[in-house]
Design a binder for these strands. Structure first.
Length: 503
RNA sequence: GGUCCUGUCGUCUAGUGGCCUAGGACACUUGGUUCUCAUCCAAGAGAUCACGGGUUCGAAUCCCGUCAGGACCGCCA
């Protein structure tokens, strides 16, 4: 394990998720800001897995974090799957470093073993709280003599390792919040480790940040109270300080910290619903950071050029999902139809409307008909301006993939038009379209023929509405000309006939 | 309860003593665009800058106090 903490010059940051649950929006935002700061400063971005809690840590949650980070495009330079000079990158694999430092603190009497039972401690906490004091360990086992310790050990009493917290006023500088001061006497003798092999968060973080030569710690504001503890530990171990930046929290509607209680905010959920990574990045970046002017569309590459911790907000930010929807729509519209088709295909497959035969070749499940990338593109293009999430394509474009449409006959009539009149309207549309040959079957040509006829009526909807409903079976959809083009000549006539039969 | 942090439209925010009768974006309302929906365009409503006091010719911006909200107080991270 390299120890270059005090000599390394460049910026080194880490994002350190704990694999105890799905990767959340809050994790993504912290990762993003770390990434932006690091890359804006030509630094090295480290991914460290904080799995010291063996009971709760699961490999699948680690994989979930990696997968979503990759999806977002936040590539780390060193991590569990990318060995570097400071590995391994899972805390569960770094026991030697912890043991060494724990023994060192114990030997220097900067830490001590505590034999108090959990129940005892709980009672103590209750008591302190009832008297209006800050609940903290009183230091009962501090005074244990060597003999007492030996006796307890031979008795087989279990112990934990506590830090002998020095009492003083500690001041540190936060890159976002400025000077923060704290009376460390209020901290109590917090626990460093369950035993020499089982370090706890505050301790393992300090050891690893040094051993991995981390220069800047950028994390959520919820870690602000941990910072004095970690600084005290650095001092006790004789380690150099690191710079801190505490990001404002991501909040739910009720302005409390975002949590499971507020519903599923996992990245996997947003990914599955069809949010684009560039939209999520843009959304998250603007939650707590802004460029100082009125631009609001930023891709990762733009952010890299402009990001600065100086422009990071101090107050928490409520997640405004409507804004995410808007941004996602913006990015969907920026895609080429080919890209969009490729992005939508998995959703259509999942809805069992489509099967991929080979790359770019599909089979329509209901009809068995084969279609290529071009046809699929023409369908998704119909809804490019209407999609907020890719997943919505299945409900919007299903008419294209169905053999027969099911809708109420009354839907075919424009406003109060009686069925007989609607019948006539469809008749007329059929005649007009019949004049267009297969080779000329495109929306411009169709519009050229249909629009003047529709114009002759008092209301364009008289002809256009029944046609559109006949083709889509929907009250709301893309326009009739483009839908007719996408469906093709044969299918268009078939649907017009089916509509007439309904009336 | 203690400690720490925070406080500009519903939400994200611009703003670092005069350009602020506070700007933008999302959401909302209304109107316009080849039927519908959406997009797009235009307009509108929406903030006594948490409150009170002070400094100043002048304060959202500086100082003091108050209040409110949040985070944390684990042998979780």
């Amino acid at each position: 394990m390299a120890e270059k903490g005090s000599t390394t010059k460049g910026v080194r940051t880490r994002f350190a998720p704990s694999p105890t649950g799905p990767f959340q929006m809050g994790n993504a935002r912290t990762a993003l800001f770390n990434y932006l700061f690091t890359k804006a400063n030509k630094g090295v971005f480290v991914l460290r897995i904080e799995d010291t809690d063996r009971e709760r840590s699961r490999p699948e949650w680690e994989e979930d974090a990696l997968e979503n980070l990759r999806w977002l495009g936040l590539q780390w330079d060193e991590g569990p799957d990318r060995e570097g000079p400071y590995g391994p990158y899972r805390q569960s694999e770094r026991a030697a470093g912890y043991r060494k430092r724990l023994e060192e603190l114990l030997a220097k009497d900067k830490a001590y073993r505590c034999y108090c039972a959990k129940e005892e401690l709980e009672a103590m906490r209750q008591d302190q709280q009832s008297r209006g004091e800050a609940p903290r360990y009183t230091g009962k086992c501090r005074q244990l003599t060597k003999e007492e310790v030996e006796r307890k050990e031979t008795e087989g009493r279990t112990s934990i390792i506590r830090f002998l917290t020095p009492s003083r006023t500690l001041v540190f500088d936060d890159l976002i919040r400025g000077k923060i001061s704290m009376d460390t006497g209020l901290l109590g003798d917090f626990v460093l480790a369950k035993d020499l092999e089982s370090p706890l968060y505050n301790f393992s973080v300090v050891v690893d940040d040094f051993d991995m030569a981390i220069t800047h710690v950028i994390r959520g504001e919820d870690h602000l109270p941990n910072t004095p503890k970690q600084i005290l530990l650095q001092e006790a171990l004789g380690l150099p300080p690191v710079a801190y930046a505490h990001l404002p929290l991501l909040l739910a509607e009720d302005r409390t910290k975002l949590s499971k209680r507020h519903g599923d905010n996992s990245l996997t959920r947003f990914r599955k619903e069809g949010y684009l990574p560039e939209a999520v990045i843009n959304f998250l970046a603007l939650l707590g950071w802004n460029p100082g002017d009125e631009r609001d569309i930023f891709r990762l590459s733009d952010l890299l050029k402009e990001f600065s911790l100086k422009r990071v907000q101090k107050a928490g930010a409520v997640l405004n999902l409507k804004r995410l929807d808007w941004l996602n729509g913006q990015y969907i519209r920026m895609k080429s139809t080919g890209e969009l088709a490729e992005l939508c295909a998995p959703y259509l497959e999942q809805a069992n409307l489509l099967e991929e035969i080979s790359k770019g070749r599909y089979r329509v499940v209901a009809t068995g008909k084969q279609i290529g990338e071009k046809e699929l593109s023409s369908v998704v293009a119909l809804y490019q301006e209407r999609l907020k999430r890719l997943g919505e394509i299945t409900n919007l474009a299903d008419f294209f993939f169905q053999e027969k449409l099911s809708y109420e006959a009354t839907l075919l009539s424009w406003k109060e038009t009686p069925p007989a009149k609607t019948q006539q309207a469809l008749e007329r549309v059929g005649e007009l379209l019949g004049g267009i040959e297969e080779k000329d079957w495109n929306k411009e040509e169709i519009a050229k023929i249909l629009l003047p006829a529709a114009e002759e009526e008092k209301d364009r909807g008289f002809l256009l509405w029944p046609l559109r409903v006949a083709l889509t079976g929907r009250e709301a959809s893309a326009g009739p000309f483009e839908v007719a083009e996408a469906l093709g000549r044969t299918k268009t006539f078939q649907r017009i006939e089916e509509a007439k039969a309904k009336l």
